[in-house]
Design a binder for these strands. Structure first.
Length: 112
DNA sequence: ACTTTGACTATAA
DNA sequence: GTTATAGCCAAAG
């Protein structure tokens, strides 16, 4: 596939994240071929604020399951509210059982 | 064109 | 367990 914008790939993958699931910047970056482009994914999210169709950025956390980007939402606790709204348990700005909810595009989208 | 920065990750101490 | 440092690459100033 040939996307003009690296961001568009990110948006696409993030949108594919099922409800009630989570993913990490690194996993998405690796799926796109950018093994070390995790920062680029987060950077893309910064542009995804008003992106159409909307990107569930609240489902994308860092490798530690920490809500690193919560400060970029309208309100810092909005991200947590969205996660909790999908059945995710958040404790101290971190996702509980992150590994359980973790959704890896490299695996889920590679089963063919 | 150069410098700074950033929603990251991995390794080391 | 934490804090520090380096590697990473693209967009914005």
């Amino acid at each position: 596939m040939q996307q003009k914008d690296f961001f568009k790939d990110v948006y696409e993958v993030v949108r594919l994240i099922p409800r009630g699931r989570l993913s990490s910047y690194g996993a998405i970056a690796r799926y796109l071929g950018a093994t070390s482009g995790a920062r680029m994914v987060g950077y893309a999210m910064n542009s995804a604020h008003q992106q159409i169709p909307p990107v569930p950025a609240h489902r994308v956390l860092n490798r530690n399951g920490l809500l690193t980007g919560k400060h970029h939402f309208g309100s810092p606790n909005q991200m947590q509210l969205l996660l909790e709204s999908e059945g995710i348990v958040v404790e101290n700005d971190s996702v509980k059982d992150f590994a359980t909810y973790f959704w890896d595009p490299n695996v889920e989208l590679s089963i063919e």
